[in-house]
Design a protein around this nucleic acid. Structure first.
Length: 286
DNA sequence: ATACCATGAACAG
DNA sequence: TGTTCCTGGTATC
């Protein structure tokens, strides 16, 4: 499940075994041979993550840039000589990275390219702050104050915060008690502070949990083994109300409208808005 | 066996 | 705003 925590987890797992070593890079499927050739045999200097983007920085100042998208995956294999010798690469493997200690297979990435440091800087400059790496929210309140659209859309905008995906969006807004359709600009500075702190806490926990997304408090949800409060659920793990799922910002929002009451202030156009006086016959249009 | 939906985001218009 | 790409898990036949 490639949200930002997945990528940071890859850094935690890969960096100790790859940084400082020459990496053999190949493209088993052949489609990415030009990418493999550009970094094959080079020594890895650093491995960096920002949001959902992963950067392998090599000694000749070339940078392998990977974004998994929806279907991309990174699979690890043990050393060729050890008990967990790597499987033969799957046909869809874009790149295989190998050292004596670790083999990493990248399959069906959204982005797989070799760039320079300037381009890497541009990619990162397009992104908002990464709540796993950064302690500073870089004025999240200011960005939300001028954001035109619901907070549920803003949280998936990687220029606002880098690394949130649809699962975390649902869980963050639940834990903050914020309705997904509230105008982003209606959040108070203190709500923005809580939003950032919650985001940072959840994503960091996701890294520590090995990339799994576990947001529930074990005491609160002791009765079942689900890992979320609202995402993927029929009923709220806290109050039992039926979860509503509908489109917000082009993705499915999941929310408990008891725990996340609808906003009825300025800008709200959802249920409860009386609107202009009805005209015509009063019948609903087909 | 087959259909559908999903953790993402670029692109067209 | 809608279309498109990719794989994999789950549901349905």
């Amino acid at each position: 499940m490639p949200e930002g925590h997945t990528i940071h987890r890859q850094v935690v797992d890969q960096a100790p075994l790859l940084v400082g070593r020459a990496i053999s890079v190949s493209s088993p499927g052949g489609r990415w041979a030009h990418v493999a050739a550009a970094v094959d045999g080079r020594v890895l200097r650093t491995l960096e993550a920002h949001g959902k983007h992963l950067f392998y920085v090599f000694d000749h100042r070339r940078v392998l840039h990977v974004h998994l998208g929806l279907a991309g995956r990174l699979r690890h294999h043990g050393p060729a000589a050890g008990p967990t010798r790597p499987d033969p690469p799957r046909r869809d493997t874009a790149l295989r990275l190998e050292t004596p200690e670790l083999t990493v297979d990248l399959s069906t990435p959204r982005t797989c390219e070799v760039i320079d440091a300037v381009t890497q800087g541009r990619v990162i400059a397009r992104l908002g702050p990464d709540p796993i790496a950064a302690d500073d929210d870089r004025d999240l309140a200011g960005r939300l104050a001028t954001y035109r659209g619901p907070v549920g859309t803003a949280l998936l905008d990687q220029a606002v915060i880098a690394g949130i995906g649809n699962v975390y969006r649902a869980e963050i807004l639940f834990l903050c008690g914020i309705h997904p359709e509230r105008p982003a600009s209606s959040l108070s500075p203190s709500e923005c502070d809580v939003l950032w702190a919650t985001t940072s806490r959840l994503l960091r926990a996701g890294v520590d949990d090995g990339g799994r997304i576990i947001t529930v408090d074990r005491r609160e949800a002791a009765a079942d083994r689900r890992r979320t409060y609202v995402y993927g659920r029929r009923r709220c793990a806290r109050c039992g109300s039926v979860i509503r799922r509908w489109d917000v910002g082009g993705r499915t929002a999941w929310a408990c409208e008891s725990c996340q009451p609808a906003w009825t202030g300025p800008g709200w156009t959802g249920p409860g808005w009386t609107g202009p006086a009805p005209t015509g016959s009063g019948e609903l249009s087909p």
